[in-house]
Simulated scan of single mutants.
Amino acid sequence: MIPAADIEAVVFNLGGETFALPVGTVQEILDYREAFQMPQGPAWLAGLIDVRGEAIPMIDLRIRLGLPAATVGPTTRILVVGVACGERLLTLGVIVDRVLDVATFAAGSVETTPDIGVRWRSDYIDGIVRKAGGFIVLLAAARIFQAEDGAIDFSDMATAA
């Protein structure tokens, strides 16, 4: 998807690669904290965290994108994101290795995602931006957290905490 306007995005590192999510998606950035483990959840579900009295599902974005699980270090952060899920807005905590920047990308600098040559599902990507020595991958948050048959429902998990 090529945007019609400039995009302001939170840029972060994940498994040695650089990704970004639109600023409007990211509600806040938290220091990493351990999650309450959810029995029999999918591998990418790290558990639940409490954010000001609200139980938030925490996602290991590395696993969701097919990378090795996150190794927690001093720069590990949680991006609290709002993801459109049908008629409602789902709040998720997304584990990232390091937050790098908040950047503005000119609409003309965003390229379409090639169908071949990237290691992630192309429907998870809204576009790419060239940078010195590589690319910044603009993620499509809503599509990353949808199952093949529709949106994943986290409502039962929030009541379990």
Rank of each mutant, 00 (worst) to 15 (best):
V99N: 01
V102S: 03
G117I: 04
P68H: 00
I136D: 00
I7G: 05
P74S: 14
I136V: 15
W120F: 15
P57H: 07
P68F: 00
T91Q: 14
R121F: 11
T25K: 12
G15C: 00
I59P: 03
L89Y: 09
T91E: 11
V129T: 00
T25I: 09
L138I: 04
T76C: 06
T104Y: 01
T71Q: 14
G134C: 02
F105V: 04
G16D: 04
P42R: 15
L48R: 13
E148G: 15
G127F: 00
D31K: 12
P39E: 14
L90A: 12
I116G: 06
A147I: 05
A151Q: 10
R88I: 11
D97H: 00
V26K: 07
R143F: 14
G108Y: 08
N13R: 03
D153E: 10
T75R: 00
I144W: 09
E28C: 07
R130K: 15
W44Y: 15
A106W: 04
F135N: 10
P74W: 09
F145A: 05
G127I: 01
N13L: 01
A55V: 10
G73D: 12
N13H: 02
F36V: 11
A55N: 09
L21H: 07
T25F: 10
G117H: 05
R33H: 11
V81S: 13
D156L: 13
A161R: 05
L14G: 07
L67R: 05
E17H: 00
N13W: 00
M58L: 13
T18P: 03
G82V: 14
T25Q: 13
V110C: 05
V102R: 03
V23W: 09
D156I: 09
I56W: 06
G93I: 02
L100P: 04
R77G: 02
I29L: 04
G108C: 08
R98H: 06
E17G: 00
I29C: 02
V99L: 01
D101Q: 08
A4F: 07
G41W: 09
D126S: 04
A151D: 12
V80F: 03
L89W: 08
V51C: 14
G53D: 01
F145N: 07
I49D: 04
A70I: 08
L100W: 05
D115N: 09
